[in-house]
């Protein structure tokens, strides 16, 4: 579904991604772990072109996306993204947060958009917050709304950039549970995370990123059980 070939990204003279080649199959859940500054966010943001790759190629459903001819907005509809800081629209209610894009992009009519928002909120356990504003929600609730908002576009892939890192510990579980159920229902997911429990239990594969490259790419049981690279060992010994 997503094929990445020798992906490079530099900011000025700073080389952040130094050649990444990976393949992600439909329905796969991939966790990306690694030290701070290793390029995890940049990697994720290249996939929906929030960052423009400096070199290499990314194919999405067989089409090369880092190509001027590609309709960026069309691509982004199919690639949902969830941010560390939620980025809910503070001037819009929960319902409007979820429906603004489908309505304005004329993907759905008002009735359909509302029904969809209701059922998505139901699935993240926030049906009763439909008329609330973001400021009235806890961190965990905000992140669940942000997930519902991304899902409203019917994406085929979901990207998560440390979705639980700015949450109080007691709210981490409610967000991870939503993500788990999404994974169980077959969503393709790429999750940058510091939650080693999630990476181990839920993902099919774990990428260990270090200094702009993916050093290891293995099923979680192997990677956590027998890290193959000294850098992985060192990192895991710090976070586990």
């Amino acid at each position: 579904m997503i094929k990445i070939e020798n992906l490079r990204k530099s900011f000025g003279r700073l080389d952040v991604l130094k050649g990444i080649t990976e393949h992600i199959a439909p329905g796969e859940v991939v966790s990306v772990i690694g030290p701070s500054g290793s390029g995890k966010s940049t990697f994720l943001r290249c996939i929906n072109l929030l960052e423009e790759p400096s070199g290499g190629a990314i194919y999405f459903q067989g089409i090369r996306i880092n190509d001027p001819a590609v309709d960026i907005n069309e691509l982004r509809r199919k690639v949902g993204m969830v941010f560390q800081l939620f980025n809910l629209f503070p001037h819009k209610s929960v319902l409007e947060n979820i429906t603004v894009a489908p309505l304005r992009l004329k993907i759905m009519g008002p009735k359909e958009a509302r029904d969809k928002a209701e059922s998505l909120l139901e699935s993240v356990g926030l049906r009763d917050k439909i008329d609330a504003y973001p400021a009235q929600l806890s961190g965990g609730q905000k992140q669940r709304v942000a997930i519902a908002r991304a899902l409203a576009m019917d994406p085929v892939v979901m990207l998560f950039d440390e979705p639980t890192s700015s949450l109080d510990p007691e709210m981490v579980k409610e967000v991870l549970d939503v993500m788990k159920s999404l994974a169980t229902r077959g969503m393709t997911m790429i999750v940058v995370t510091h939650e080693m429990g999630f990476a181990r239990e839920v993902s099919d594969r774990v990428f260990f990123m270090d200094d702009g490259v993916i050093l290891e790419n293995r099923p979680p049981g192997e990677l956590f059980g027998h890290p193959g690279h000294p850098r992985t060992k060192e990192f895991l010994s710090k976070v586990l």
Binding site: L50, N73, N87, V100
Partner: peptide, 22 residues
Amino acid sequence: SPGQMEAARSLGMPFGMAMKEI
């Protein structure tokens, strides 16, 4: 916050629409 523009764009909204709506 720049995250607002990113969130809007990541939902597939074109720049002008994101500007006006968000």
